[in-house]
Each structure stands twice: as structure tokens, then as C-alpha cells.
Design a protein around this nucleic acid. Structure first.
Length: 378
DNA sequence: GTAGGGTTAG
């Protein structure tokens, strides 16, 4: 029902898209005009800030206070860079505090700043405050852009407000507030998948394929992965064929998701075919691919075959990692070859791998399963 | 490089 609403609007919107594009071009040219105008202002140097000294959040806050004291004050771009550096450290509350201080001290704020702030609220699961900031866009005479809306859509999904996210997306399309881009589509599709609405995401993707919006490889990957996780492996295979048909090249992530799905159902013939297809597309297997194979073989009790894959990894110069070792340890334990599991764990240091608590845990688990707990005393 | 999107293995 919801998707059919989207269908209607997508078609209508796709038909109008050319006009919108021209409009946005004219918007661009006006901002170029503004830029050149700014360049003609009397020369007044604003300090350039060196952000390379920031190694932690305290450095960032210290630098911020310095920036507030500077005369003339650094321009808003520098403040935005500073805020971004705090966001990158995932210190969203600190970013908001700094923003608050900026406002109180009258430092200048622009659309970029407001988008950064909305993003922080969204990441703190306070999309409601994000919408409040949207209000201050208008108050300050700024226009929210597609980044603003993408951020808010993501925020709604993070806050489990799936219906609201869909409504906002539909509003974007219907009212032509902003032209959705690939990020919008991925945000929608990813949000729907994460919320457990894989089929809605799938329908939306198939719908967008028919319009002038072109979902990218990441969007296909998200849906293929989600279909596999939801046991709809054949639909995922079909979608893989579709994307190739549409000229979107699958990448290693696409194939790894697909292989995981097939392995979960022991579809070894399909696994083999897919690996051949990967070779045809000149996509080499990476450590994820091999780990999926090793793990699946071990879980199916085919430890000998798993060990063969383990050897192939070394030949192919894709060294096994800690995850590979865990899979093998579990595999050996499953078939009662706990000594081989122990030997593998002992060999890890020689392979440049530091056995972790997880590796030991797996081995201990193996000993328990094999009722050899007394051997742990060694 | 001033702001937004993602994915795969234990």
C-alpha cells in the first residue's frame, strides 16, 4: 500500500526531474555569483586554523576556546571543520555543547553547521531536536538541502519511526522540496531493511529501477544482504542477476553476502557457480569470502575441505585471520579433533596472529564439548 | 576534505 503511493509519486517525479535539474543549476549559478561578490570585499584576513594538533576531544575543545578568543575570529568554515572533527570522534554531545557555546558567543553559524548539529541529534536518537533545528534553518533564512533531509530520514529510522521516515521521503518526492539522490535512496532502503521491512525495501528498489533514479551497487548490496538474512536466497540471486542486467557491477561485498546466504542453506553447487562467476567478473576472493567458506564447511562437518580452503588462502596470499582460526577451532571441536584445534591455536603466534580471549573461549568450548576439561590444566 | 549514505566473516 505504502509502496504503491511511492510508485505513483516516483513516476510523477521522474517525469518532472529534468525541470528540477535545470532549476538547481540556476541555483548553483547564483551561489557562484555570491562567491565572486564576497571575493571583492575589502581584504580582511581571517585566521586559518591548523587542525592537525587535535588528537582527542580535549584538544578540540581547547582549540575551540582559542578560536573564540581570536580577533578577527576565524570564519564559520573553520568552526565547521572543528565541529566535524569532534563528530568524527563520535563525541556527539560534546559537538552539541560546542555548538551551544558558539551560539551564545555569537560566532557565525551557517547551513553546514546546522546540518552537523542535526546529524548529532539524530545519532543521539533525538530526531525530534533535529526537526527543531530544521525550524531554525527557516528562521535564519537558510534553505535546507538534500543533506538535511537525508540526515533527518536516517534519524527517523534510528529512532524506529519507520512510518515517519517513509512519509518524509514521500513528501520530498511529492512536493519536490529537494531532489533525492543516491544517498536518499540508500538511506531509505537501508533503514527499511534494518527495521525488518526487507520486502518493502525490495519493492522500493524495484520501483526506482523503473524511474530515472538509479540505485547504486551499495543499495543493491543492502537489499541482497537483507534478503539472504531473511532466507529469501533465490530472490537475492534474482536481484543479483537483475543488477548485472541493469549494468550495475556487483562487487566483492555483493558476492560475499550472496555466498553467505547460499552457504547457510548448504547450497554448495550454487556456491561453486557463484565463485566461477566471480572469476569471470575478475573479482578476487578476499578474507571475508574465505572465512564464509571455511566457517560453512566446518559447520557442515567438512573440516578436511575447510582445511584445504585454509591452505588455499595462504597460497593465494590472503592470510587467514583470527576469524578463520575460530571457525577452524569450532570445526575441529565438532568432529572431535580437539588436538588439532589446540595445535591451530598454538600456531597462531607463528602466523603473526595474537590469540584473543575469543580464540581461547572457542577452544575451551571445544574441550568442554569433547569432555576433556581436565586437559585444560596443561 | 565544511555537512549526509553502506555492506560482507567468528
Amino acid at each position: 500500500m505504502r509502496v504503491s503511493t511511492m510508485a505513483l509519486i516516483c513516476r510523477r517525479f521522474a517525469a518532472k526531474k529534468r525541470g528540477t535539474f535545470t532549476q538547481s543549476l540556476s541555483l548553483f549559478s547564483s551561489s557562484f555569483h555570491d562567491l565572486s561578490h564576497n571575493n571583492n570585499r575589502p581584504f580582511s584576513p581571517t585566521p586559518r586554523i591548523d587542525f592537525s594538533c587535535i588528537h582527542g576531544v580535549d584538544d578540540a575543545v581547547f582549540l575551540f576556546r582559542e578560536m573564540l578568543r581570536m580577533r578577527p575570529q576565524p570564519c564559520v568554515v573553520e568552526f565547521n571543520k572543528l565541529l566535524t572533527s569532534i563528530v568524527k570522534m563520535k563525541k556527539y554531545s560534546v559537538t552539541l555543547n560546542v555548538f551551544d557555546e558558539m551560539r551564545q558567543s555569537g560566532a557565525s553559524v551557517d547551513e553546514y553547521t546546522l546540518n552537523i548539529v542535526i546529524n548529532c541529534y539524530c545519532l543521539l536518537n533525538r530526531v525530534d531536536f533535529g526537526f527543531a533545528i530544521l525550524g531554525s534553518f527557516f528562521k535564519r533564512g537558510y534553505e535546507p538541502n538534500i543533506i538535511t533531509f537525508n540526515t533527518l530520514i536516517k534519524g527517523l529510522f534510528l529512532d524506529d519511526k519507520v512510518i515517519e521516515a517513509e512519509k518524509l521521503f514521500i513528501k520530498l518526492l511529492a512536493l519536490g522540496l529537494c531532489e533525492p539522490n543516491e544517498a536518499t535512496i540508500l538511506t531509505m532502503v537501508n533503514g527499511l531493511c534494518k527495521a525488518g521491512h526487507t520486502l518493502t525495501a525490495y519493492d522500493l528498489l524495484r520501483l526506482l529501477e523503473k524511474t530515472s533514479f538509479k540505485p547504486d551497487v551499495q543499495t543493491y548490496n543492502t537489499v541482497i544482504n537483507s534478503l539472504c538474512k531473511d532466507r529469501m536466497v533465490d530472490d537475492a540471486l534474482q536481484l543479483l542477476a537483475t543488477m548485472i542486467d541493469k549494468g550495475i557491477a556487483p562487487n566483492i561485498v555483493t558476492y560475499n553476502s550472496m555466498l553467505q546466504g547460499l552457504c547457510n542453506f548448504g547450497r554448495w553447487k550454487d556456491v561453486k557457480d557463484l565463485i566461477i562467476e566471480m572469476a569471470d567478473h575478475k573479482i578476487s576472493l578476499n578474507v571475508f569470502t574465505f572465512n564464509i567458506l571455511v566457517d560453512a564447511l566446518c559447520k557442515d562437518g567438512m573440516v578436511k575441505e575447510a582445511k584445504d580452503v585454509f591452505e588455499i588462502m595462504m597460497q593465494k596470499n590472503v592470510p587467514p585471520n583470527s576469524v578463520t582460526c575460530n571457525a577452524m577451532i569450532d570445526g575441529y571441536s565438532l568432529v572431535g579433533q580437539i588436538d588439532k584445534a589446540r595445535k591451530l591455536l598454538d600456531s597462531m603466534s607463528g602466523r603473526g596472529l595474537k590469540p584473543s580471549i575469543i580464540n581461547y573461549g572457542r577452544l575451551i568450548n571445544g574441550y568442554c564439548k569433547n569432555e576433556k576439561v581436565d586437559l585444560l590444566k596443561d
